[in-house]
Design a protein around this nucleic acid. Structure first.
Lengths: 340, 340
DNA sequence: ACGTCCAATTGCAGCGCTGCAAAGGACTAT
DNA sequence: ATAGTCCTTTGCAGCGCTGCAATTGGACGT
């Protein structure tokens, strides 16, 4: 049984297809009489517009895609909780895609891939793509980048001040009297910009306090997840001179690090204080609760969507800009201890 | 500047548009000579096929959508890690949509909504829709349901044996000598089928052990998240006769419950043993680690995708079936204690 | 040399919808 | 009665692609 089309409705209602289209889209002025006829026909036939055909004719789809490396990273999942409603409010439907941080996959998405036609715009959190890779993007694709990439002027970038936030986190540890502070999560290569900014903050805090940085306490990890955090922490503890505090580049890393610490019978924070980054829900419920840098996720989501829609709807070229959302330090048990 | 089309390529290569199409799609036999010409023209013009137009012409999109209530629920996020690669392997791209458990939104998706045309099929984890609501679905939409809905014969259902799994979980608590066992997460209303099956297992385990069920220890929650778990646990502890074990209907609920227990200075599992459901990564790293029912997520994902693709590609009606994935009990610190 | 056959290529029509501009119709003003 | 005005409705063409069936041209057989 064929799907009913505009034409079927038109025939039944005794009007032209164009009029049915007008009714469906609320266009132009249509008299109550004809509107009624058409609506009755629509109901009778169970007509629904074919969005594919509509999109082809109009050249727009009303959908935006949010591309993240991993959907099972709580930070992204929580960010999406802000993005989805914000976009819906502006009349866009959101679909989510995952790249596994794969450079090629990400490249295909922002490049001249065919999927382009399915979406009016994209919010991308790149992981596999370096700053340079971003240059190969399709300039016609409205794009907003999350995380640490600097806009090259053809797309927008939304993020927080990572260096400042990291500096605050490490200063917090210093203020608590810790002197051997480790950092877990550095990524000293082109795609590791976000990590590098945090390392920069780590150094800045030391410098501000007049403390030397023990380079050997800066541990690299391939990803910001629990396994890597646990492994890195184990390596640190196996040393002759373990740290008395750890700055983790994500709450997941912190969760893994704490797991290792507790597993070895050490106390957090008495033996080792831990601070994370992202403020995911997990950290508010874990034991101990995790001190963290809390980015204003709602603001990030809101800014990204607003800016993307501006880009989509504008007919003239929109200059790429940098948008900064706020952040704040939240001290919890993993640095302060149980009795607050 | 207009996007280049098939026709542009055809003109440049000096062949017909149809031949270009044949090259692009690898159809039919095309001589090396013409293929070369066409490919050169494609490269020169930077042509990319317009999938919208292709989809309209072919009537299929190569995309499937996975609809979940909440993307920030780790269980779903982890499930997607299985679904996405399984689908890609079969030539389908996966997009994800979130409904907030909203009945109307879910209804629109499975019903005769316009978005239908964007996807060849759907994997849905319903929350707001009752068994009855499912009946209004568009019969032409290939659909696989996850979670606890029984197939009505027009769609497939993939799940685990919730009653058996729940029974095992509670028996585990009983075997440990616990006698006042609470359950957190019941939902005694039409959309709460999953919860009800777990409650059923809770009763079954008691019955099998010859123990009475204290109905007042079955606590309802609106969702299966941390806040609800924490709140329910608090209510249980405020009673004159608190439980010595808790069966939580998800690991998130368990996480919340443990948070409350530890916050009140109680020990887990010495004072109260806790077991969860879902086996999310969180529970493997938390302190204490969380005992849980582990559904075979990879199998669920695999079965769901395979079955959906069968449904999509089959020309004749496919009878709806029930597919069961395995599960196993994983005892961790929250029931066994630290020294295993 | 001519017919047959087969592979390579092509043309047509149409997927279902909307942008645009013009046609139709009712009504008003003169 | 007639021209002018304004609002509603319509027809056409086309978005870019593919299914289908037909055409072309060369290879081969007799």
């Amino acid at each position: 049984m064929r799907e009913t089309t505009l034409r079927d409705v038109a025939d039944l209602a005794g009007v032209s297809p164009r009029t049915v289209s007008n009714v469906v889209n609320g266009y132009a002025r249509v008299t109550e009489a004809t509107r009624g006829k058409v609506e009755r026909a629509i109901a009778e036939l169970g007509y629904r517009p074919n969005v594919l055909a509509r999109n082809l004719a109009t050249g727009r789809s009303g959908q935006i895609v949010v591309v993240v490396p991993y959907l099972d990273t709580p930070y992204f999942a929580e960010l999406l909780q802000g993005i989805i409603p914000a976009a819906r409010k502006l009349g866009y439907n959101v679909l989510v895609d995952q790249t596994d941080g794969d450079r090629e996959h990400e490249g295909e998405l922002i490049g001249r891939g065919s999927r382009r036609f399915l979406f009016d715009g994209m919010i991308l959190s790149p992981l596999g793509l370096s700053q340079e890779d971003l240059a190969i993007r399709d300039p016609a694709l409205p794009l907003v980048i999350l995380g640490e990439r600097v806009s090259d002027g053809t797309f927008d970038h939304v993020g927080i001040d990572d260096v400042a936030a990291s500096t605050e986190a490490v200063r917090h540890l210093i203020d608590l009297g810790r002197r051997r502070i480790a950092a877990i999560g550095d990524q000293p290569y082109p795609t590791g910009e976000a990590a590098q900014l945090r390392t920069k903050g780590f150094r800045a805090a030391h410098a501000a306090a007049g403390l030397p940085v023990d380079e050997s306490l800066i541990i690299g990890t391939a990803r910001f997840n629990r396994v890597d955090g646990a492994t890195a922490m184990a390596a640190l503890l196996d040393r002759a001179d373990p740290p008395d505090a750890v700055f983790c580049y994500s709450d997941l890393v912190a969760s893994g690090a704490i797991h290792t610490l507790l597993g070895r019978g050490l106390r957090v924070p008495q033996d080792v204080a831990v601070i994370g980054y992202d403020d995911i829900e997990d950290g508010r419920y874990s034991n101990p609760t995790i001190s963290t840098v809390s980015p204003d996720k709602r603001a990030i989501a809101q800014l990204a969507v607003e800016r993307l829609v501006i880009r989509i709807t504008s007919t003239e070229p929109v200059p790429g800009i940098e948008l900064r959302a706020g952040h704040r330090l939240i001290a919890r048990q993993s640095t302060l201890g149980r009795s607050t």
